[in-house]
Measured scan of single mutants.
Amino acid sequence: MLYVKVKTEDGEELVLEVEGMTEDEIREELAKAGFKIEEIEVYEVEP
């Protein structure tokens, strides 16, 4: 499983499960949803 931890400019932290997306695609999708991203951390969790 691939997850991203996202910190927004307003200090909110989100953890999202993503599969088959690049970091650029993740940033693009979050921007479309109205999030202003300060930091993204991508990590993989073994089942």
Rank of each mutant, 00 (worst) to 15 (best):
G34T: 01
E23P: 12
E46Q: 12
E28D: 07
E28R: 11
A31F: 10
E23R: 12
V4L: 03
K36D: 06
V6N: 00
K7P: 04
E29T: 12
E41F: 15
V15N: 05
E12D: 09
V45S: 11
G20P: 04
I40V: 06
E13D: 06
E44I: 11
P47I: 11
K5R: 07
E41W: 15
L16T: 01
E12T: 13
K36T: 06
E9A: 13
M21H: 06
E12C: 15
E28G: 06
Y3H: 09
L30C: 06
V45L: 08
P47W: 11
D24P: 05
F35K: 02
T8R: 07
L2I: 09
Y3S: 05
E23M: 15
F35W: 11
E28F: 10
A31Y: 10
K5L: 07
K32V: 05
I40S: 02
M1G: 08
I26G: 00
I37R: 09
D24Q: 12
A33Q: 15
L2V: 08
I40Y: 08
E23H: 07
Y3A: 05
E41H: 10
V15A: 04
L2D: 02
Y3L: 12
I40A: 03
V42W: 14
L2T: 09
T22F: 04
E44F: 11
V45M: 09
E19C: 15
E13A: 04
E29F: 15
L2P: 02
E28T: 11
E38C: 07
E38G: 10
E38D: 12
E25Q: 10
V15T: 07
E25Y: 03
E29H: 14
E17R: 15
D10Q: 11
R27T: 03
E44D: 10
Y3T: 08
V18E: 00
G20S: 05
M1Q: 09
D24H: 08
K7I: 12
E23S: 07
K7W: 12
I37E: 05
E28P: 01
V6W: 05
Y3Q: 05
P47M: 08
V45Q: 10
E25V: 04
V6T: 01
Y3V: 13
E41R: 09
I40Q: 01
F35S: 01
E25H: 03
K5W: 13
A31L: 12
E12H: 12
K32N: 07
E9Q: 12
K32C: 08
G34F: 02
V15I: 14
E13G: 03
E39R: 08
G11K: 01
E17L: 14
E46T: 09
M1I: 13
G34W: 02
D10E: 10
L30T: 01
A31H: 09
P47K: 03
V6A: 04
E17W: 15
I37P: 12
K32A: 09
M21F: 08
E38Y: 14
V45E: 08
E46S: 10
M21W: 06
E13M: 12
I37Y: 10
E38T: 15
R27N: 02
E39M: 13
F35R: 00
A33S: 07
E23N: 04
E9D: 08
E25R: 06
E13S: 10
I26Q: 01
L14D: 01
T8M: 13
K7N: 04
A31W: 06
A31T: 10
E46K: 11
E23G: 06
E28I: 09
E29C: 15
G20Y: 10
E17M: 15
D24Y: 09
E39I: 14
D10I: 05
K36C: 08
L14V: 07
K5D: 01
V4K: 00
V15D: 04
K7G: 02
G11Q: 02
I40M: 10
D10H: 09
Y43W: 13
M1A: 09
G34L: 02
E38K: 14
I26M: 03
E9K: 15
L30V: 03
V45R: 14
E28K: 12
V6F: 12
E29W: 15
K36Y: 06
V15G: 02
K32L: 08
T22G: 04
T8K: 07
V45G: 09
E39F: 13
E17S: 10
E46P: 13
K5G: 02
E46N: 13
E13K: 03
G11R: 01
E23F: 14
G20Q: 05
E12N: 11
V4E: 00
E28H: 09
M1H: 12
E25A: 07
V18G: 01
E38W: 14
R27G: 02
E9M: 11
L2R: 14
T22D: 06
V6Q: 00
Y43M: 11
V45T: 10
V6L: 09
E19M: 13
D24S: 12
I37K: 05
G34R: 00
L30F: 06
E38I: 15
A33D: 03
G34Q: 01
Y43R: 04
V4A: 05
P47F: 11
M1V: 14
E9V: 11
D10A: 09
Y43T: 05
T22L: 04
G34I: 01
E12K: 15
I40R: 01
M1T: 13
E9Y: 10
K32W: 04
E25I: 04
M1N: 07
V42M: 09
E28M: 11
L16R: 02
T8N: 06
A33H: 13
G11H: 02
M1K: 15
P47Y: 09
M1L: 14
V18I: 09
V6R: 00
P47R: 02
D10V: 04
K32P: 00
A33F: 13
M1F: 11
D24L: 08
A31V: 13
K32E: 05
A31N: 07
E41G: 06
E23Y: 14
K36V: 07
T22Q: 03
L16G: 01
G11A: 03
E9W: 08
G11M: 01
E46W: 14
I26T: 01
K5E: 02
K7V: 10
E9S: 13
I37H: 06
K36P: 05
V18N: 01
L30S: 00
L14T: 04
K36A: 07
V4S: 00
E12M: 14
T22K: 03
I37M: 08
K36N: 10
G34K: 02
M21C: 13
V45I: 12
V42R: 05
I37N: 07
I26E: 00
L16P: 00
K7R: 11
E17H: 13
Y3K: 07
L14I: 12
F35P: 00
V18F: 15
T8L: 15
D10F: 06
G20T: 05
V15M: 11
R27I: 09
I40H: 01
M1P: 13
L2M: 12
V15P: 00
M1Y: 13
L14G: 01
E12Y: 13
E17A: 13
G11N: 03
E28Y: 10
K7E: 04
G34M: 02
K36E: 05
G20I: 06
M21T: 09
E29G: 05
I40N: 02
L16M: 10
E46V: 13
A33W: 14
E12G: 11
V45Y: 14
T8E: 01
E38R: 14
K5T: 06
T22M: 03
Y3R: 06
E46I: 12
E19D: 10
E46M: 14
E12S: 12
V18P: 00
T22W: 03
G11D: 03
Y43V: 07
L14N: 02
P47V: 07
V6Y: 07
E12W: 14
T8D: 04
I26N: 00
E9F: 09
E23D: 05
E25W: 03
E44W: 15
V42G: 04
E28N: 08
E17T: 12
G34E: 02
V42I: 15
M1C: 06
L14R: 05
L2Y: 15
I37T: 07
G34S: 02
E46C: 08
V4M: 02
E38Q: 13
V42E: 03
G11W: 01
K7F: 10
D10Y: 11
E25K: 05
D24E: 12
T22Y: 03
K5M: 05
E41P: 02
E28W: 08
G20N: 10
G20C: 05
R27L: 08
E29I: 15
E23L: 15
E23T: 10
L14E: 01
M21I: 08
E25T: 05
E29A: 14
E12V: 14
E39A: 13
V42H: 05
K32T: 04
T22I: 02
F35H: 04
I40K: 01
E29S: 10
E39Y: 14
M1S: 10
E23Q: 06
E29N: 09
K32F: 05
E39H: 13
K5N: 03
I37W: 10
P47H: 07
A31K: 08
E25M: 07
E41V: 12
V15H: 08
I40L: 08
E12I: 14
T8Y: 09
E17P: 06
E39N: 13
V18D: 00
D10N: 11
V15K: 03
V45K: 11
G34A: 01
E41L: 13
V4C: 02
D24W: 12
G11I: 01
E19R: 10
E44S: 10
E12L: 14
E17D: 04
E12Q: 14
I26C: 04
E25F: 03
G20W: 14
L30M: 06
E38S: 12
L30I: 05
L30H: 00
R27V: 07
L2C: 07
F35A: 02
E29L: 15
I26V: 08
V42T: 05
V18R: 07
K5A: 03
G11Y: 02
V4R: 00
K32Q: 08
E13I: 14
A31P: 01
E19S: 14
F35G: 01
K32M: 06
E19W: 15
K36S: 08
L14P: 00
E17C: 12
I26Y: 01
Y43N: 04
E39D: 13
E28S: 09
P47N: 09
